[in-house]
């Protein structure tokens, strides 16, 4: 196994080791057997076709943000295992997906320095430097609600919608954290739910040199020193490529809350097959960039819906993983 694959495997330790035990709206491990094999078969086939027609850079760009590629690797590997693809095939796909991820980053695909290609001239970036306590609170509210909105509309596949990067150090020692949100209006998934009527948001917050924050390749935030709200010394909010005022940004909070409440209500009242079908739709949406390149329909095949209708969640995988189980599963990769 090469270094990159070993690093990839180790990165799962961080993701699973701080297991978020998230079972909303349903524990993913208990339902993945109902569509992950079909998903991976299609993903691998589409990726191979794209490789014949397009450059690595073009394919990477179609995914827009690196974590959208990185976070899907494990799901593809799980499906390939279920399809009895051999270890070499699994390694080849993982290697290529890491290569795609690297295309969208300045450095390594493992976020060793936190930066993306998205930003390289940070000293020239305009930042509002006057910020009151009240404004800090409002910005924190917008950032908080967008996390929850992302989770609500894409469940665990929130890599479709967000990429956090930084901290970028300016020449004056101050640091920038960039929170990018994309695909905020997925009407293809939620046609009956009121959604934010915007596609992308970038929130830039500036911090003094003594705030220590690390962002791993799964977009997890590890705050080692400081306070994300209280230590903020500047900000900028950009919606659909236009700068907006904090006051107009606040409308996001109310609108996001409305969507979150509606989806929460939906998840409480829907039966399992419908929730699982929604999960499948989100997964197929994850690979939509490949379908777009190939000019083919991205939707979930009818056979998958039937399989979900005829299947049930596997309760053996409804519980939290122990440290020993986490290590076991990591060791079974490749």
């Amino acid at each position: 196994m090469n270094d990159n694959l070993e690093k990839y495997r180790r990165s799962l330790e961080s993701a699973w080791g701080y297991n978020d035990y998230n079972d909303w709206p349903i524990k993913f491990n208990s339902i993945m057997h109902l569509f992950i094999k079909e998903f991976a078969d299609e993903f691998v086939s589409d990726l191979e076709k794209c490789r014949k027609e397009y450059s690595t850079f073009t394919i990477a760009n179609a995914f827009n943000n690196p974590s959208r590629i990185y976070r899907i690797i494990h799901s593809v590997l799980c499906g390939m295992k279920r399809s009895h693809r051999n270890i070499e095939q699994q390694r080849n796909i993982a290697n290529y997906m890491l290569e795609l991820t690297a295309c969208l980053k300045i450095g390594s695909p493992f976020n060793e320095d936190g930066r993306n290609l998205i930003l390289d001239n940070i000293d020239d970036l305009f930042i509002n430097k006057s910020i009151s306590e009240c404004e800090k609170n409002k910005i924190a509210q917008i950032c908080s609600i967008l996390w929850s909105y992302s989770e609500s509309i894409f469940f665990r596949a929130h890599d479709i919608t967000k990429e956090f990067h930084g901290l970028y150090k300016r020449s004056d020692g101050k640091q920038l954290l960039i929170r990018d949100y994309f695909n905020l209006y997925p009407y293809q998934i939620w046609s009956n739910i009121p959604l934010l009527p915007i596609n992308s948001i970038r929130i830039i917050s500036m911090y003094p040199p003594n705030l220590y924050l690390k962002i791993d390749t799964y977009d997890h935030l590890f705050l080692e020193q400081g306070n994300l709200k209280n230590d903020m010394i500047g900000y900028r909010i950009i919606i659909d490529n236009k700068d907006i005022t904090l006051e107009s940004g606040l409308s996001i909070v109310e609108k996001s809350l409305e969507s979150i409440r509606e989806i929460s209500k939906w998840s409480k009242h829907e039966k399992y097959p419908e929730i699982i079908k929604k999960y499948a739709e989100i997964y197929w949406f994850r690979k939509k960039p490949l379908c777009d390149l190939l000019k083919k329909d991205w939707h979930v095949p009818e056979a998958v819906y039937k399989k979900i209708d005829n299947g049930t969640p596997d309760i053996r995988f409804s519980n939290e993983l122990s440290a020993r189980e986490i290590q076991f599963f990591i060791n079974t990769i490749f």
Partner: peptide, 17 residues
Amino acid sequence: ETGGKLTHICVVALEMG
């Protein structure tokens, strides 16, 4: 009672300081 360091509700808490 449940959750881990990376549970989303904790990230919301982190964002809110």
